[in-house]
Design a protein around this nucleic acid. Structure first.
Lengths: 220, 220
DNA sequence: TTCGGGCCGTTTGTATACATCGATCGGTTA
DNA sequence: TAACCGATCGATGTATACAAACGGCCCGAA
């Protein structure tokens, strides 16, 4: 994290993810200069990068604005993610190495341990999310397509931004964990179709979990 | 094309596509300043943008370099393109409007006219490529996913860069034309599976056409 | 009262000067 | 002679000053 542009990028990005800059907030360069502690040049560079990654929207001579996400955008995002993650899982099932299989297996066993342990739920969830990322990235890499890795990384970043208010329940985590276990079995069996199907379910379930429960429409 | 940054972007991008800056060429900011006729600030912005779009590679304190493409990169690129274009075609078949269908039909009929006309082959090919873009973009938009549109646009840009030396033969164009015609029939029949299958073939054929013919290994 | 036009403040866009990093080349030493 | 160290140069990274553009406001006229 040596240079100013990267520092500015990280600072602004964190600000967006933690809600300091809510959706639709206008990001003025002068404010970000004091916020990040660097001059306008690296701030501008960071903003352009964030725009390329779809975190903000830049209009000519009108600066940057934090992107907001509609219900349809989320559907769109997760539908593509399901397609690509499914594809990655299928390819991975056909070509995963013993080492990567072991890494998957280890991560999932570690999840077991975390969930069975006697720690606070929030801590459990945080740890689970970290391992979740390991599982997915292992699958992506095992797919053997660098481009797929970068595209999926990109989509997941956006998904992260879209639901700043993480609504992870412990029940949701348990379902997710079962998916991972089944995914591992599919990989061990080198069954591409199975791996793809379970991965798609996994992602679509994640989409579903973002919507409020059916009976809990707000305002009543 | 009002501002300097966009002018720089267009100039450098064209330079890469037309071979002025060959693969692996180092792009020094000072040289680009004279090449584009703007100062370093917009040149740098253009380079970062090109890096985000995978046209160049930037290393810290070492500037930018035009990306080069290996055989495997091309496989990777077209394999993903086949997946996504196929997906877009399937979705489009299910939800395409009458207006878009007419647009597809018109573009294809225009291709007929161009191919049957009495003009130079190079002119025919150029015109065909323009209409080809119209056909594909219509399908993307009809898919109803903005994200898919931007991802595919991105992948096609990269494909364009990867084969600067366009090796389009008239025979290749004819095959491509037949694919388009069949795609239109699949759309008219609203047969998603058919549309997806023909689109995949279409993209994989395009990949194949980039490799030199089997018997024509260079150097002999 | 409402619409149009021009002024002014704020914000972004561009140019340029300065700081810093890395690579190369030459000299010195083991 | 080979290897290492340091100076120097050229390139990128950063800061800042200046230019241009957008938006809001006030004022005047219909």
């Amino acid at each position: 994290m040596a240079n100013a542009a990267d520092r500015a990028y990280d600072a602004i990005r964190s600000g967006i993810l933690d809600g300091t800059f809510p959706p639709n907030a206008r990001l003025k360069e002068a404010e970000l200069v004091t916020f990040c502690g660097v001059s306008r040049t690296p701030v501008r560079e960071a903003l352009r990068r964030l725009a390329a990654e779809d975190f903000v929207r830049i209009q000519r001579n009108q600066g940057a604005q934090v992107k907001s996400w509609s219900h349809d955008d989320l559907d769109d995002l997760f539908s593509l993610r399901a397609l690509l993650e499914g594809h990655a899982a299928a390819r991975a099932a056909e070509r995963i190495t013993a080492a990567d299989l072991a890494r998957l297996s280890d991560a999932i066993r570690e999840m077991d341990a975390v969930l069975a342990s006697d720690t606070a739920q929030s801590r459990k969830i945080a740890e689970f999310l970290r391992l979740n990322r390991v599982v997915h990235e292992t699958v992506w890499q095992a797919s053997g397509s660098d481009r797929l890795v970068s595209m999926l990384g990109h989509l997941v970043e956006q998904a992260l931004m879209a639901h700043t208010a993480q609504k992870f329940s412990i029940a949701r985590v348990a379902q997710s964990h079962h998916h991972h276990q089944e995914l591992l079995r599919a990989m061990q069996a080198r069954d591409a179709a199975w791996a793809e199907a379970i991965m798609r379910s996994h992602i679509r379930a994640a989409r579903q979990a973002l919507d409020p429960p059916a009976g809990a429409a707000d305002g009543h």
